[in-house]
Write a protein that binds this DNA or RNA. Structure first.
Length: 736
DNA sequence: TCATCTTACGTTTTT
DNA sequence: CGTAAGATGA
């Protein structure tokens, strides 16, 4: 026994845990799955377990690999570990999958044909690159959008599929079967740019570990313990990566995964709920510990949420129990509103009433399914002077001015960054348009030099107008001067000088729009963030991975965000508007994906309800304004799935037409809507409304005018597609 | 090359 | 209805 290590009891940190939590912390060896329901102290267990490994001398800090999905989670874990241990801990392998993989990939980049200086592309770069790759293929970009193509590639990367390992069964007919070729070309372009995208970070490292046993062995030697947060959100590549790292020879994997199958809501970005469902099979001798004592919500909310989620079949099953006795509160309120405006009225009125009773705005949240729903609430709260904040909108580093400034920064660090050059070559206007850019591209490809170099080469003037040529030469000088400043006056001064002299800052000063001053402020904010890093390189590495600028919480405002954005948060009062078929569950999930995606929607509802500590208010409206026109809607099947004894149905608009709550009907009676019922949740126009002369819209043929009505078949003169006979259910009437 | 018009589109988000 | 990205004309 090592006597210099104090016994765990001496620290007392184990005493603060309940029995299950303590078991999870003390189960050190072998595979472990901690099924942690909402509000059951998941982070506490994870951090205490980490600290326990350190304090008992089981592992040194660098021997534990701990992966999370968000930087926020990683930061929180590190803070709490340090609090438990009582001092700062360095040399941790604690971070997001992406951050950990960058660290590994920089070490072994050569094995996948990259330098250790490789750049990480942001979404804008990816789109621009994929467009360039698609152009020569002659694919109709209107039908197969670059965005969707990128999605296809990302899903492949999520499943550890490289262009050469895609089997015919895994291929797609997207882009007329050329998707694989585009993927291949895209990867080649990335390699020639010495760059990779987010998916590559994981996939490259996985390939390295898979194909180079000596590298894998070195990590086996290094990591004695592995911990994974939000295991239900892992994609196939991350799962394979974890399995390689954890399965050491002759030893049980010391891997502990924490997750909640009931909170798996990210399948659309590649997460495989199967990973958590088949943990026992993947890791033989796995131990499973359930954390079911909830320290967050009242009995009513827990029962309502449990009753709802019980309608899912694909789950490991667990029941939330109140962690302390007698936490009774009020039932879950179900508000019926006549229309979406009424819904906003009802909710804001309740917010005001609660605030008058002394509740803080900051302890209330409106959680919506889709971001377009926030608008109605913004309008009302603005009008009523209720302070609010929208969480999750456009993030700081996604703003155009920030991306521009960062492109200048990248070019300052590396003159060969072609994607950065493309972004700012003509921002502000320097007389370098699309044609000039094309010529520069051609020259650069022929001479195998970066774009900037090609444009400035001796025969450069042939590529550009004199004006453009001069402007670019000046820009190049500005960057050269900036690079001299990097060493002396520092990177902030250097970038500021470049942006000033290049005329970028002046461009916004001259801009007369109302947003312009704010944009200059944002750039100042960027300088401030930059100053906290020792070098330009360090700063660029950071922002490539950490795209979140911490939102200032603190002030007393109502929180408005999507259900996805609310995961992991909690509030005293939670408002859940838009619980209607076609909104929530969303139309898309009803049309595509079948039962699986319906279950994911239900998990999302479960996540929403379990955010509430003391009260949850669900709302549904009978009519909703969507885009141009009004649509009728019926209450979400999820409302009916909440057991009646935990529900309090209120109809504040008695006398108005409000939807019948179809509670007695079991959920299975709701049909999964067929695609052709799109947009007609309950009220497709009756046949009589189709008359000759009416304008209609058809998904494929576009706009047209009805010529003849023959039963349910219409002859329509389409503006683009000509005369067609179509079934009435395929067209929408256009109100004029 | 740039400003204006037109048209298509319209879950969920992190890294 | 509003936006954002392409097409069109000066």
């Amino acid at each position: 026994m090592n006597h210099s290590v104090p016994s765990p009891e001496a620290h007392g940190y184990l005493k603060r845990l309940n029995l299950e939590q303590r078991a999870a912390v003390e189960s050190i060896d072998g595979p472990l799955l901690i099924l942690a329901g909402a509000g059951t102290g998941k982070t506490r267990v994870l951090t205490t377990r980490f600290a326990h490994l350190l304090l008992t001398g089981k592992a040194r800090p660098h021997q534990i690999l701990a992966v999370t999905f968000t930087n926020k989670a990683a930061r929180e874990m590190k803070d709490r570990i340090e609090t438990l241990v009582g001092h700062t801990v360095d040399g941790l392998w604690l971070g997001t999958f992406h951050a950990i993989c960058v660290r590994m990939l920089r070490r072994h980049a050569a094995l996948v044909g990259l330098s250790n200086q490789f750049t990480i592309l942001d979404t804008d770069d990816q789109i621009r690159l994929i467009k360039q790759v698609m152009e020569p293929t002659g694919i109709d970009v209107k039908r197969w959008s670059p965005n969707a193509m990128l999605g296809v590639i990302q899903r492949w990367k999520d499943r550890a599929l490289t262009p050469t390992s895609i089997t015919p069964a895994e291929d797609t007919d997207f882009a007329q079967g050329k998707a694989r070729d585009i993927y291949l070309a895209y990867q080649e372009r990335l390699r020639s740019l010495d760059a990779c995208d987010f998916g590559d970070l994981i996939l490259h490292v996985y390939e390295i570990l898979r194909l180079h046993p000596e590298v894998l062995k070195s990590y086996h030697h290094l990591f004695r313990y592995i911990m994974v947060d939000e295991y239900q959100d892992t994609n196939t590549t991350q799962y394979l990566w974890l399995r390689l790292l954890s399965q050491r020879q002759d030893e049980d994997a010391n891997i502990a995964c924490v997750g909640d199958d009931d909170q798996s809501i990210y399948s659309w970005r590649g997460a495989e709920i199967e990973n958590i469902l088949r943990f026992e099979r993947d890791f033989p001798k796995a131990k499973i510990i359930r954390l079911e004592q909830n320290y967050r919500s009242t009995q009513e909310i827990l029962s309502a949420a449990s009753g709802l989620i019980a309608h899912n079949h694909d789950r490991l099953g667990k029941t939330l129990r109140p962690g302390t006795d007698d936490r009774r509160g009020e039932k879950v309120t179900i508000l019926a509103a006549p229309d979406s405006d009424g819904e906003a009225h009802l909710i804001t009125a309740r917010i005001e009433a609660l605030h008058r009773e002394g509740h803080d705005y900051a302890q209330m949240a409106i959680l919506v399914r889709a971001s377009f729903q926030t608008r109605a609430f913004e309008d009302r709260m603005l009008a009523k002077n209720i302070p609010y904040r929208i969480i999750g909108g456009i993030r700081f580093y996604e703003r155009a001015e920030i991306r521009d400034a960062l492109a200048y920064a990248r070019l300052l660090a590396r003159p060969g960054d072609d994607l950065a050059f493309e972004r700012i070559a003509n921002t502000p206007r320097r007389g370098i348009g699309a044609t000039a850019m094309q010529k520069i591209h051609a020259a650069a490809r022929a001479q195998h030099v970066p774009l900037m170099a090609a444009a400035l080469a001796e025969d450069g003037p042939k590529l550009l107008t004199r004006k453009g040529q001069e402007a670019l030469a000046a820009l190049s000088d500005i960057f050269a001067q900036g690079r001299e400043k990097l060493g002396g006056e520092g990177h902030v001064v250097a970038l500021e000088a470049v942006l000033e002299e290049a005329g970028y800052l002046q461009m916004w000063r001259d801009d007369k729009s109302i947003e312009a001053p704010g944009k200059l402020d944002n750039i100042k904010e960027l300088f401030r963030a930059m100053a906290e890093f020792p070098s330009l390189e360090a700063f660029l590495e950071h922002i490539a991975l950490v795209m979140d600028a911490d939102a200032v919480q603190g002030d007393d405002k109502v929180n408005v965000m999507t259900l996805h954005g609310a995961k992991g948060l909690e509030f005293d009062t939670v408002f859940l508007p838009g619980w209607e078929e076609g909104i929530f569950p969303s139309q898309r999930s009803l049309e595509e994906g079948g039962e699986r995606s319906l279950e994911e929607e239900r998990r999302l509802a479960y996540v929403g309800l379990t955010r509430a500590r003391v009260r949850a208010i669900i709302c549904h409206a009978a009519r909703r304004r969507i885009y141009a026109n009004w649509q009728d809607s019926i209450p979400s099947r999820f409302v009916g799935e909440i057991p009646e004894e935990w529900r309090n149905d209120i109809n504040p608009y008695n006398g108005f037409r409000v939807p019948e709550t179809p509670f007695p009907r079991p959920a299975s009676h709701w049909p999964i809507l067929a695609r052709r019922d799109r947009g007609k949740t309950s009220m497709s126009p009756p046949m009589e409304e189709f008359e000759a002369g009416h304008r209609v819209f058809h998904q494929k043929y576009g706009y047209g005018t009805i010529m003849v009505v023959n039963g349910e078949t219409l002859s329509v003169a389409f503006e683009k597609a000509g005369d067609k006979a179509v079934h009435a259910s395929y067209v929408d009437l256009i109100s004029s």
